[in-house]
């Protein structure tokens, strides 16, 4: 089975590097984007199996990215895990409504993050493809 590809969207280079190491160690392929604009471009180009998305981003924040992904039929089906330092109380529901699959607050426990990733990737085929 080919490796699953994950697009990491975060403007913090340290976090990107750390997440990259962690995901590659767990046999995922990774690609990145550091701002909202290139996040959508990369999603178009790379067609990742999953996106890990920060909210506070230059050139279009996480909500803008979610909106653009939802509007594009080909990208709307990609599960998105929002990973942010922001307060879940005020942001979680909003991101889920905007189309995110899961919301995790930084620093997210490694096991929790990996579980969320495999859960999101485990969607039975077709359940989201039609939306």
């Amino acid at each position: 089975m080919p490796k699953q590809k994950i697009l990491i969207v975060d403007d913090d280079p340290d976090l990107k590097k750390g997440l990259n190491l962690r995901l590659r160690a767990n046999h995922y392929d990774t690609v990145y984007a550091s701002d909202g604009f290139s996040a959508v471009m990369m999603a178009q180009k790379e067609r990742p199996n999953l996106i890990i998305l920060d909210i506070g981003l230059p050139a279009g924040d996480g909500f803008v990215v979610l909106e653009r992904l939802q509007k594009n039929a080909a990208l709307a089906t990609i599960p998105v895990i929002v990973l942010t330092a922001r307060d879940p109380q005020t942001n979680k529901e909003r991101t889920l409504k905007a189309g995110a699959t899961a919301f995790l607050q930084k620093p997210a426990d490694n096991a929790e993050l990996l579980e969320a990733i495999s859960a999101a990737l485990d969607q039975p085929p077709g359940t989201m493809a039609q939306s």
Partner: peptide
């Protein structure tokens, strides 16, 4: 307080990520 706690989470995330990478022997 809300701003401060948000800002503190980002470096804390790095500390957690990289020490857990070392701990797990990934480096």
């Amino acid at each position: 307080l809300s701003h401060v706690s948000h800002e503190m989470r980002t470096p804390l995330t790095s500390i957690y990520q990289f020490s857990s990478i070392l701990w797990d022997g990934l480096a």
